[in-house]
């Protein structure tokens, strides 16, 4: 009794206390504070055009962060996410070029992307959930295999000759004067939000993350759920890869180098609790926004790109420490 009691947190009131509200609002407040701080140094940060820019940049990262969240929720990791983006970018581009580079070839590109990402996700999921290999090492190994494919099939060079409409529609296009990538990220957010809230799959992800053994004992088929989580993660990464490819207008073997880290950082900053089955896509989106605001600000005040990398690492550690407090039992 007493040992258990020790592991339980302080009793909470069933209503929201001011502390809970403050805790929930922590990240939005941080985002505003960072914006204002950069705005003091460089007024352009606070312009409407830059806000639009931030939203646009954040929408790409948000998709990757949401992808990573799917597996983080289950106590997993996907270190192969970044290189999956590279491979999908290259392979989808090659498919489009091979199919003539017309508008219709976009469909083949999407098909190739889905196929490749699906295969990577399936392989990850089967190795992790089916055979039971540590997710970290599995996806680390997978990352290097995927990287090898990405760099060899492209010969290391960008794939050019993509359909013009790809960039025109999916990168520069807009609807109701809101850029297409933002719409797509918002759509993904809504869909995943519903998946987590209103499907058995979503509920199972949380339960597995909170306690895998309890999930098994409660009759949840954990293997298919986990496999699906990794497949979903890879497919979302592929979607993001297509959007990034549309933005650059070519298939880039180096597209995803830093994305794994950024996606994990965004999710963790947002508060997706590693190994605790807490958090959600909302957290991932906020985290992505925070990371983007920070890097956008650093770009505008002309901080070296390498220093930004240092900041990213520091932010991960700081947010781990900050989020730890409320997780403490």
């Amino acid at each position: 009794m007493s040992m258990e009691a020790k592991t339980q947190p302080m009793a909470q009131l069933s209503g929201l206390s001011p502390r809970d509200v403050l805790r929930a609002a922590r990240l939005p407040i941080a985002i505003v504070v960072v914006l204002i701080l950069f705005g003091l140094v460089e007024p352009r940060v606070l312009s409407l055009g830059n806000f639009r820019n931030i939203a646009l940049q954040a929408s790409y990262l948000a998709i990757f962060a949401m992808a990573q969240t799917m597996v983080l929720l289950t106590r997993g990791f996907d270190l192969s996410l970044g290189y999956t983006v590279s491979l999908v970018s290259v392979a989808a581009s090659m498919a489009m070029v091979a199919m003539g580079g017309g508008d219709a070839s976009i469909l083949y590109g999407v098909g190739a992307a889905a196929l490749i990402a699906g295969a990577i996700g399936l392989a990850n999921g089967v190795l992790i959930a089916g055979i039971g290999i540590n997710p970290l090492v599995t996806t680390l190994g997978m990352a290097n295999m995927v990287l090898a494919f990405a760099s060899t099939i492209s010969g290391g060079f960008p794939v050019t000759g993509l359909p013009k409409s790809l960039t025109a529609e999916f990168a520069q296009g807009s609807l109701l004067s809101i850029p297409m990538p933002i719409w797509i990220a918002a759509l993904v957010f809504v869909l995943l939000f519903l998946v987590l809230k209103a499907t058995r799959f979503g509920r199972s992800l949380y339960i597995i993350g909170a306690n895998p053994r309890a999930a098994v004992a409660a009759g949840i088929r954990t293997v298919p759920v986990l496999v699906l989580a990794y497949v979903l993660c890879a497919l979302l990464a592929a979607l993001g890869a297509l959007l990034l490819t549309a933005r650059t207008g070519s298939g880039e073997p180096n597209l995803g180098g830093n994305l794994t880290l950024e996606a994990i950082a965004a999710a963790v900053v947002g508060g997706v609790r590693l190994a605790r089955g807490e958090g959600g896509v909302g957290a991932a989106v906020l985290g992505a926004l925070f990371v983007t605001v920070l890097s956008n600000g650093m770009n505008l005040v002309q901080i070296d790109g390498y220093l930004q990398q240092i900041c990213l690492g520091v932010i991960i550690i700081v947010s781990l420490i900050v989020n730890r407090d409320e997780a403490r039992r």
Partner: peptide
């Protein structure tokens, strides 16, 4: 604790 409940999740779940 270890096999029965998902402690971090609400009672309802």
């Amino acid at each position: 604790g270890s096999e029965g409940l998902a402690l971090a999740r609400p009672a309802r779940e």
